[in-house]
Amino acid sequence: MSTSSETRTAPPTENAGAAPAPPTVRGTRLTLAGAELGRPSSPVVSGVDLDVAPGEILTVVGSSGCGKSTLLRTLAGLLPPLSGEVTQDGRPLTGPSADRALVFQEDALLPWRTLRANVELPLAIQGLPRSQRRAQAETWLDHVGLADRMQQLPHRVSGGQRQRAQLARALAARPRAVLMDEPFGALDAQTRAGMQDLLVDVLHGTGATVVFVTHDVDEALFLGDRVALLGSGRLTAVRDVPHPRDRSAHDDPARVALRREVLTSLGT
């Protein structure tokens, strides 16, 4: 199976906040070998062989119920494999770790904490002094364009702004891998496109490995270095994406051909 380069580049995007660049984080390698995934009474995916390179963005698509979220939760350490191996940098992955941040479609912000206090939470768990975690939280909120909203409670801001805050919270702890479960699925098309660009922008330079689950084929082909296709209880294919993170390549013949293949795999 082919793998992407150990590093990636992203097209520059505008960042009105002009926040200081976050610290570089070395990505991590996530590997599944002959893995059967699911719960003991209900296996969902079998025979998974997948190697996610450090610093890669791997997108995962498949029909509802095919095991996308199961795969993500296995990589997060929330579900042990039923058989086979799941490793991080060659060592068995045995449970959750601060090295791997999980981002959900629902923003999961604590409603009684301000946006800044939500972003500070993983830093507090790490034991950082209050002044340091406040400064880091403010830097990240500035980086995602929320410098003027950091004192707001979650219910006082829009859905897109809550997702920005969730992204800041996930990255503030400098995880080596970010696992994203359809994080933009509930957003309207314009906000969704803006969040995709923001994700590319804030990840640029961090080196973090990303596994991004989505039901949106165009989103998968825009964001991913590679796209993994799940269906019929197995991993059916992993394909390199031509010109990742380049919106002008939407009509590129190779991208169009891959889009057709992905849609065919989904039965659409």
Rank of each mutant, 00 (worst) to 15 (best):
A257P: 10
D148P: 02
Q166I: 05
A33T: 09
T191P: 08
R260F: 09
T9M: 00
S265D: 13
P92Y: 01
V256K: 08
T31K: 00
A189S: 12
L263P: 02
P111Y: 04
G233V: 00
C66I: 11
A101Q: 12
G160F: 06
P11F: 00
F222R: 03
P111A: 09
L37S: 09
V103W: 02
A177F: 08
N15G: 14
V217P: 07
R245F: 03
R8A: 13
R176W: 05
L229Y: 04
P20G: 10
D99W: 04
P23F: 05
D246M: 04
V210N: 11
G267H: 02
L203V: 10
L167I: 12
L229H: 04
A208M: 02
T9K: 02
G231L: 04
E219P: 12
Q136C: 05
R169C: 06
T74W: 04
A18P: 06
V48L: 13
G224D: 15
A165E: 02
A35Y: 02
D251E: 14
A189W: 09
D240T: 13
R133Q: 12
L102G: 10
D51P: 00
E120K: 01
E219F: 10
L123W: 09
D49F: 03
E6R: 06
R174E: 15
H250P: 14
Q136Y: 00
T7P: 14
R134T: 02
G84S: 03
R116H: 11
R164M: 09
R234T: 11
I57C: 06
E182T: 11
G55T: 09
